[in-house]
Nucleic acid binder design. Structure first.
Lengths: 170, 170
DNA sequence: GAGATATGTCAGTCATGTTGACGTATCTTG
DNA sequence: CAAGATACGTCAACATGACTGACATATCTC
């Protein structure tokens, strides 16, 4: 949070603001980095007859077991109708199970089955391979910077939700 | 391309490879950072009745005037049929013009019209606002790290193409 | 008991990608 | 110069994953 006091609305105050090329470089690297990373798992997904939408759900359920449907909706920022179809397919394929919430019986808590966990692990291995290669090449200091800039791209209103992924529930 | 000599294929050499949480943190930040940044311009695009696919084309044509259709296809990594529809719409709306290549008359060189350039600038302003705020908050060192890690995510085979965006065509 | 909330579902639509096939103009090469 | 490769365009059919709008049910909260 260094330099937070510098007004982003005052272009003259920061040389960064004026350098169009530095902004474009970030836009492009973010685009290529993100799309190429996600491409890495498409082939694996296609084998199972699943799409990226399924992977995103699997990923977050793996990351935070007993996630509720509502929490997952907020993470994915899609409509419940869209998510409903995805969850139904994952359930039909025995990759995800739901149980009724203990505290609030209206909620459904999502968990991966053993099959689901195995598939998620296989997909995650692809991501790990690519990302750890990039981490190693860039070095630890760069990794911190990478995280730091990306955190700044997440709107304030979503930041807590994203950080909470790192904590266990309960 | 510094550190290129460090073997990315030697997992044991770095504790990073074993830390699942650091990989997941990168995956999540990349996902949220990328999607939230692109969301930032959706509203503006919707006003014009355009989608993200149109923006991607506008962006790269702005970035490298006289880009050929084939080059744009390689950047976007989609089929010519998909791109054809997008370019047709941009042309119909007087945002893009094509001219026949001087050296190779089979090629079509793409350029933004004044309207197209104005729209692209308006959309770019949104990206600049978000990214420069993140850059300023994170600091210059972090920005370098951000770039460095992302470069490592771009497959070797695409890297030259991405770097070439920074050069003018001659 | 009344209203808010969490979830599910039906139905229709849209944006954006895909495959496959085919046509034309132009360049390159034997 | 003829033959083949290349750059681009286009028709048609289809898949995925989003969307809106409407409505149903169970459960919680006050």
């Amino acid at each position: 949070m260094t330099d937070i006091s510098r007004p982003a609305t005052s272009p003259g105050a920061s040389p960064l603001f004026l350098r169009e090329d530095e902004i474009r470089r970030g836009v492009e690297l973010l685009y290529f980095g993100y799309t190429r990373l996600t491409n890495a798992i498409d082939q694996e997904l296609a084998k199972q007859g699943l799409g990226r939408a399924h992977h995103r759900a699997l990923y977050f359920i793996a990351r935070q077991p007993d996630l509720t449907v509502g929490e997952l909706l907020r993470l994915l920022a899609i409509t419940k109708q869209s998510l409903g179809r995805v969850l139904k397919e994952l359930h039909d394929r025995d990759l995800v199970v739901t149980k009724t919430g203990a505290l609030d019986r209206r909620q459904k808590l999502l968990r991966l089955t053993d099959n689901g966990a195995a598939l998620e692990a296989e997909l995650f291995a692809q991501l790990r391979e690519r990302l750890s290669a990039a981490y190693v090449t860039a070095g630890q200091e760069s990794v911190s910077g990478f995280w730091h800039v990306l955190e700044g791209l997440v709107p304030e209103s979503d930041r807590q939700m994203v950080f909470d992924l790192r904590k266990d529930k309960s």
